[in-house]
Simulated scan of single mutants.
Amino acid sequence: MAYDEGLAEVMRDDLAQLEGLKEVRMFGGICFMHHGHMLCGVHKDGALYRVGKERHSMALDLAGVHEMTMTGRSMGGLVDVEINAMAEDALRERLLEMSLEFTASLPPK
């Protein structure tokens, strides 16, 4: 697979206490779905978190976090995290918190 399995394990550990979690192969990596909504994932160059448009600029202020782009287009509400930045527990915790807040605001699937 085209992603870092060690990074996927780190993310699995971060998500271990969540119920309603499912792994789905997507974006050349793995996305983690929480109650049917995409929450976060890993890809070949790092990770992504779905923080929502309201928290997007706040997330971009964090070190190692960038705008998520696919095929040259910005993916509003998603942020890309450098693989080296994923070593920071506090960063992962903050991004996961933002992502959980956003997905909790979505209608149930």
Rank of each mutant, 00 (worst) to 15 (best):
M1S: 08
M1H: 13
M1F: 01
Y3C: 05
Y3R: 08
Y3P: 04
Y3N: 09
D4M: 10
G6N: 15
A8F: 09
A8T: 13
M11H: 12
D13A: 15
D13Q: 14
D14F: 14
D14S: 15
A16I: 07
A16W: 07
A16Q: 08
L18N: 14
L18D: 13
L18H: 12
E19M: 07
K22L: 10
E23T: 09
E23N: 07
V24Y: 08
V24K: 08
R25T: 10
R25M: 04
M26W: 12
M26K: 15
F27I: 04
F27M: 06
G28R: 00
C31A: 11
F32R: 00
F32P: 01
M33T: 15
M33C: 10
H35V: 06
H35T: 10
H35K: 15
H37R: 08
H37S: 03
M38N: 06
M38K: 03
M38R: 13
L39M: 07
C40G: 03
C40T: 15
K44F: 02
D45T: 08
D45C: 06
D45H: 07
G46F: 09
L48K: 06
L48C: 14
L48S: 12
R50Y: 06
G52A: 13
G52N: 11
G52S: 12
G52L: 07
K53S: 04
E54G: 02
E54D: 10
H56G: 01
H56E: 14
S57K: 06
A59F: 01
L60M: 10
L62N: 03
A63S: 13
A63V: 12
G64K: 11
V65L: 07
H66R: 13
M68I: 01
M68Q: 04
M68E: 12
M68S: 06
M70T: 08
M70L: 08
M70D: 03
M70I: 07
T71E: 15
T71I: 09
G72S: 09
S74P: 00
S74L: 14
M75L: 12
M75E: 04
M75Q: 05
L78N: 00
L78S: 00
V79A: 01
V79H: 03
D80I: 01
D80C: 03
V81F: 02
V81C: 02
E82L: 09
E82K: 11
I83K: 04
I83C: 08
I83W: 02
N84I: 00
N84E: 09
N84D: 10
N84L: 03
A85M: 05
M86N: 02
A87L: 04
E88V: 08
E88C: 13
D89K: 15
A90L: 09
A90P: 06
A90R: 11
A90G: 12
L91I: 06
E93Q: 14
R94F: 10
L95K: 02
L95G: 02
L95E: 00
L96R: 15
M98R: 02
S99P: 05
E101D: 11
E101K: 12
E101M: 10
E101F: 07
A104T: 12
A104Q: 12
S105L: 11
S105A: 08
S105G: 15
P107S: 13
P107Y: 07
K109Q: 11
